[in-house]
């Protein structure tokens, strides 16, 4: 098999207060996969995400991205390869205009002039926000801000897109539009979510993190269709939702 884009081995992390958030996580994600990362509150999902681009440093174990170990000498390159979209767009959009925010990442990578302009234009087009380039981000609606947040990361042309709860706080239409955008992208995706129908719709594979270890890894439809396993990991489907029936009606 090819080299995994994300290769997490026996990853453990204890926060400074001694709390062990991760205790030996093993995860491999291959090129082109879309994987949902599920798990109850406090399972360690966000902690895992922050290791993937070297924001947090492992207490034990290792992470590599397409063969490149995540660590001090190559942090810049790792952060180009792994694009993280944080849960609250207000944390991610800090510049005075949408254009400047999207340009921030590629400019840090050294792009200038026409190359930079082209990157920004393309990223904004991918999320359908090209008409908002000169607006200040804080005057956009929440759904629009989330889309711009995705564009800021796409502009860095990452190999893996990591999203922390991308559908939270979105109205149903924005939620569906974001799904369309994600489906249209040709990148590897790791998506943290509590929105199980969303995981089913977008990600063929699901991984469950529970108490700091990977507790399940397999086809999303099999996991959601297994009530006993679901209950064990504190996962619950919305009332009346039938995963197998839903897949039957999935848009191509």
């Amino acid at each position: 098999m090819s080299e995994p884009v994300l290769d997490v081995r026996r990853l453990a992390h204890a926060y400074p207060d001694g709390h062990e958030a991760l205790r030996g996580v093993d995860l491999h994600v291959h090129r082109g996969e879309r994987v949902a990362l599920l798990g109850p509150n406090g399972a360690g999902k966000t902690t895992l995400v922050l290791h993937l681009n070297g924001i947090l440093t492992p207490t034990a174990g290792s992470v590599s991205v397409s063969g490149l170990p995540v660590g001090a000498p190559h942090l810049q390159e790792v952060r180009r390869r792994v694009g993280v979209v944080f849960q609250d767009p207000d944390d991610q959009l800090f510049m005075g205009s949408v254009h400047d925010d999207v340009a921030f990442g590629p400019a840090n990578l050294g792009l200038r002039g026409e190359a930079l302009r082209a990157r920004v234009r393309r990223a904004l087009e991918q999320v359908g926000m090209q008409d908002y380039a000169d607006r200040p981000p804080h005057h956009l609606s929440y759904g629009q801000r989330r889309r711009v947040a995705v564009a800021t990361v796409l502009a860095m042309e990452p190999e893996v897109l990591v999203l922390d709860e991308p559908s939270s706080n979105l109205d149903p239409a924005s939620r569906r539009e974001l799904a369309d955008i994600l489906r249209s992208l040709d990148v590897t995706v790791l998506m943290v979510t509590h929105d199980l129908p969303y995981a089913l719709e977008l990600c063929p594979r699901a991984v469950v993190l529970h108490d700091g270890v990977i507790a399940a890894d397999g086809a999303t439809v099999d996991l959601l269709g297994d009530p006993e396993q679901m209950a064990r990991h504190r996962l619950e489907l919305p009332f009346g939702f039938d995963p197998r029936a839903a897949l039957g009606h999935r848009p191509a």
Partner: peptide, 20 residues
């Protein structure tokens, strides 16, 4: 702190890049 993390994630190294 979270904004700072988001900036680091996009390659921030302490200097604001020159934007057109």
């Amino acid at each position: 702190e979270r904004v700072h993390l988001a900036m680091l994630s996009r390659g921030y190294d302490g200097r604001m890049p020159d934007l057109p």
